[in-house]
Write a protein that binds this DNA or RNA. Structure first.
Length: 268
DNA sequence: CTGGTCAAC
DNA sequence: GTTGACCAG
């Protein structure tokens, strides 16, 4: 074997090792602080982000949230769901981590242990399966709320699957979701994580020429009723939460869309 | 899919 | 603290 051949083999081996190590580092990445120059997807959709009643908006690469320190959870989580985001990857569920981007300190997952409540994702892991990084990014405690298992695995799961159906059908929707955070809610854990009595989801479809909107308000208990029974106007969610959705829309259009509780433009 | 607990390392 | 097996809706 010539020296030249040996050197080229060594070069290839080194290249493979370097690439493998970079992949390893990416998989091992423990925090989700946004890297310089890597603008999060969600922030590019700033136009559709709701107002924050808590003045603490946090952007991650694949979703944004507004954290309520008082309730130790997000008042809303917002993200775009494209048809191309849906994948059949099956990543292993990692441990939940404290979201270091939340300045007031996000709650620890131990608050949920033996509480009788699920760590219910707000941005579902099932919506962020296009890469392991995107999937694992949903396992931050700023992205969960205490949910009864029957609710989470029941009607809420049905609603999340319906959103995926709409994302596939309409090729992209914008989703905002959270618990209705009120005063004097029951709490769990040493950090007093509030247990919402209702959860909401607001969905915007901007993919067709005709922009459309739909909102759901679901009591925190399982139900066998069809999902359309829980449709409400966006105005109703705003009145309950104090959050202003889509305020950048032209006023007349915003009022027309947000006052409607019709679901005739959405297929179930 | 949505999750949980437990034992073993 | 982590991992994998097993369970529930």
């Amino acid at each position: 074997m010539t020296k030249k051949k040996i050197l080229s083999i060594i070069a290839v081996v080194i290249l493979i090792a370097v690439l493998g190590y970079e992949q390893f580092l990416d998989n091992q990445k423990e925090d989700f602080i946004i890297e310089e120059g890597k603008k999060p997807k969600a922030a590019t959709n700033q136009y559709f982000l709701p107002t924050s009643t808590t003045n603490q908006v946090v952007h991650h690469q694949h979703y944004s949230l507004s954290y309520s320190e008082k309730h130790e959870q997000a008042e809303w989580v917002a993200y775009e769901l494209k048809a191309s985001d849906l994948s059949r990857n099956n990543f292993k569920r990692p441990y939940f981590e404290i979201d270091n981007a939340v300045k007031t300190k996000a709650a620890h997952w131990r608050n949920y242990k033996n509480s009788g409540y699920d760590r219910g994702h707000l941005c579902p892991a099932g919506d962020r399966k296009f890469t392991k990084t995107a999937h694992d990014e949903t396992f931050l405690t700023s992205n969960i709320s205490p949910q009864k298992h029957a609710f989470n695995a029941g009607i809420w799961n049905r609603l999340e699957q319906k959103v995926r159906y709409w994302a596939r059908k309409n090729d992209g929707v914008f989703v905002i979701t959270g618990g209705v955070l009120e005063n004097n809610l029951q709490t769990i854990g040493s950090e007093n994580v509030a247990v919402p009595k209702k959860f909401y989801k607001v969905i915007l479809d901007k993919t067709s020429s005709k922009i459309k909107m739909i909102a759901f308000l679901v009591p925190h208990k399982d139900s066998k009723l069809p999902l359309y029974k829980f449709v409400v106007s966006v105005n109703k969610i705003e009145a309950l939460t104090g959050i202003d959705f889509f305020k950048e829309l032209e006023d007349d259009l915003e009022e027309r869309l947000e006052s409607s509780s019709s679901y005739k433009n959405w297929s179930f």
